[in-house]
Design a protein around this nucleic acid. Structure first.
Lengths: 230, 230
DNA sequence: ATGTGTGAACGTATTCACAGCC
DNA sequence: GGCTGTGAATACGTTCACACAT
């Protein structure tokens, strides 16, 4: 392998595997906690345990990321945290627009997990004329046709869709046209967006469907009561 | 390959790949819509388009499931929907307990997507003494130590965790002890549960972290008017 | 001794491409 | 002609196992 005695690949270059990217926020979360507790080093074992991942997986991920560990010791919590924050872009604040101010949308405005990680909802959009102009969570609800102005005004790169399925695709198009490059979609619908736009889908009903499959399978397979406790 | 002129493997046997299982609810959803519109057949092309999946993928999934398509025509909507419902266990109602009646928890009680697919939240649990005994969404909030009684009383197999990360693992243990076999976890924490318990994790902050990674990467790749910086 | 870094082995998932049937 | 069903090819992801650094 190439020998770079003291150099590590920095932020801009890595095309990290998507599966790895999906785990980085878990590690980040764990590291923040450990750091707060004053712990200075973690092993892949400990990190993996807390994140729900095998130690080998942790090492693979972190090595792909180019993050230095110390053999016989583990990883330096503060260093690793800094590096991870850079890679994930969590050193800056991300301004987010939320579209759809229904039940879920309103709950999201109050979710503290976002702010703790540097995400701030700075604009609200809804299609319902009754809602437009009202204030929710300290923000004025605006109309969707103002999206280009909103995105430019606030410097927004990320949009959250909490609209009904029927409206999702159209709203996605508007968001993309307005300049948003990443979308978090809560609607149970596929979004047709250009390739360079990143979409993550969170489909609660699907999740329950998947669980139902397993619960049923389990119920069918269980002859009597035959589980054990760990 | 084996010739089974008219026989297709039915509900009880298939150990479907997890990736396939995760897509079945998407297909199910699309089929319900098409069925409502009175459409009688769909091609893998159409189904895939609506679900955000390639046609080849759809065919692979449905063939693994043992579901019959007609060459030159496509799939019979009603047949396929029936079969899928059976496989996913969506022919029955699933009774669900929700633990954690904060912002997110309350929003979930009002989420119509669950009921539409046969999931009903039939019990609410919270640790906060202030909340216990109050009524939310027509249900009385109960204490966690009543979980065994609740699960038995209501015939519950699925639990939803909308509690703070620090409490998640302990609550999961209580749910499992009470007899729940599948969990939907909204807390940003790993749950230590026995192997036979199925957990799906929905981590909103992680999702945003993943998007931030891509948004940043994209911004770095964009040569012209760069972002604002910090 | 302990725990990383990583090739190699393994397993899983997706895509291709085409034969076969309607 | 159109579209499924599916082996074969490929890509992706995870786990193993062990040399090597501290």
């Amino acid at each position: 392998m190439p020998e770079h005695p003291d150099y590590r690949p920095s932020v801009g270059d890595a095309p990290l595997p998507e599966a790895t990217v999906a785990r980085l926020p878990l590690y980040w979360q764990v590291l923040v906690e450990r750091d707060d507790e004053g712990v200075t080093t973690v092993s892949s074992q400990q990190l993996g345990r807390a994140a729900g991942v095998t130690p080998a997986q942790v090492r693979k991920d972190l090595s792909q990321l180019g993050s230095p560990g110390i053999r016989g010791v583990g990883y330096q919590v503060d260093q690793l945290l800094t590096h991870l924050s850079q890679v994930l872009g969590l050193t800056r604040e991300w301004r987010v627009v939320l579209v759809g101010i229904g039940n879920l949308g309103r709950a999201l405005t109050r979710y503290e997990g976002f702010a703790e990680r540097g995400f701030e909802i700075v604009a609200l959009v809804d299609a319902d004329p009754e809602r437009i102009g009202t204030r929710v969570a300290g923000l004025e609800v605006e109309s969707a046709d103002r999206l280009p102005a909103i995105v430019a005004r606030e410097g927004i790169a990320i949009g959250i869709l909490a609209v009904p399925a029927a409206a999702a695709d159209e709203v996605a198009r508007q968001l993309v046209d307005a300049g948003v490059t990443a979308l978090l979609n809560f609607a149970p619908a596929a979004l047709r967006v250009p390739d360079h736009i990143h979409v993550r889908r969170v489909d609660l009903a699907s999740e329950l469907g998947i669980l139902a499959y397993h619960a049923q399978r389990r119920a069918g397979a269980t002859p009597l009561l035959d589980q054990q406790g760990r």
